[in-house]
């Protein structure tokens, strides 16, 4: 008797949150479907398509950097105890709590024309693709690192030890045993990090208002033309990202079985 009522109550409470997200997103999509011409206008607008492509592309670059540098970091965090480990872990999570405008300003002070690195760098970050990528990388890296670390933690270190007795050096043991076994976590982490990069706005506009990524373009249209101009672009962005996100998640699941 108790479990039934128990789960009904838990479900009822939980559905509030679910409805909240669902209504917010799908209300916008359905409303837009009542105005297909507006959506068509967005699809045929080359500056809209360019901004969406730029968003996706920049976030892929940021994710690639996160994977290349974050995988070894995640491995070390999963396997080794060292003094200051707690500090490193906090540093990894720090971007999660820094307000995004603050992140943008901090990035500007490093990568800006007079910034710590920017003043020596031959690569321009301000109002350029590299600026967008570093902003996305900053906010999305915790998602990748934490997921990859969980992946490595789920691999019994003794599997590597046994591989070592079979003749594998530490690199081979990592590549043949730990990496494949953590691959699903790494893939999911990369997807999450990519999705987080796409959704970034605050940090990006501080360092690179131009070229406009989709969230910036939507903001710009909203301020200059109003809701009617910005809603179709938002819906288009949501539809494209949802399609990619869902397909990748399915891919990641399929990879496991």
């Amino acid at each position: 008797m108790r479990p039934k009522g128990f789960y009904i109550w838990m479900g009822a409470a939980g559905s509030i949150l679910l409805l909240f997200s669902f209504v917010t997103i799908f209300n916008m999509i359905f409303t837009q479907f009542l105005d297909p011409m507006g959506l068509l206008g967005a699809i045929t607008d080359s500056s809209v398509l360019a901004s969406i492509w730029l968003t996706i592309y920049a976030s892929i670059l940021a994710t690639l950097i996160a994977v290349v540098s974050g995988t070894p970091l995640a491995y070390i965090l999963a396997r080794k105890e060292f003094p200051g480990k707690r500090l490193v872990e906090s540093l990894v999570d720090l971007p999660l709590i820094v307000p995004h405008t603050v992140a943008g300003i901090a990035l500007l002070m490093v990568f800006g024309s007079h910034g710590l690195i920017g003043q020596f760098s031959p690569v321009r970050f301000v109002d350029a693709l590299p600026g967008i990528v570093v902003a996305m990388l900053f906010v999305s890296s915790p998602f990748f690192i934490n997921s990859a670390r969980e992946g490595f933690q789920s691999v019994d270190p003794r599997l590597e030890w046994v591989a070592r007795t079979l003749g594998a050096d530490p690199w081979t043991a990592f590549l043949r045993v730990s990496l494949p076994l953590a691959s699903r976590h790494i893939l999911v982490g990369a997807i999450m990090s990519w999705a987080r990069g796409i959704s970034e706005f605050g940090a990006v506009i501080v360092i690179a208002y131009y070229p406009m990524i989709a969230p910036t373009l939507i903001w710009d249209r909203f301020l200059t033309t109003g809701l009617k101009a910005s809603a179709p672009i938002s819906v288009l962005l949501i539809l494209i990202c949802m399609t990619i996100f869902v397909s990748l998640r399915i891919l990641a699941r399929g990879d496991q079985s």
Binding site: L159, W161, R164, T165, L181
Partner: peptide, 16 residues
């Protein structure tokens, strides 16, 4: 370990 020429079998086998 890879230079010691030993084989190891754990209680729970530690298979891949």
């Amino acid at each position: 370990p890879e230079k010691r020429e030993v084989g190891f079998v754990y209680q729970d086998y530690a298979l891949f």
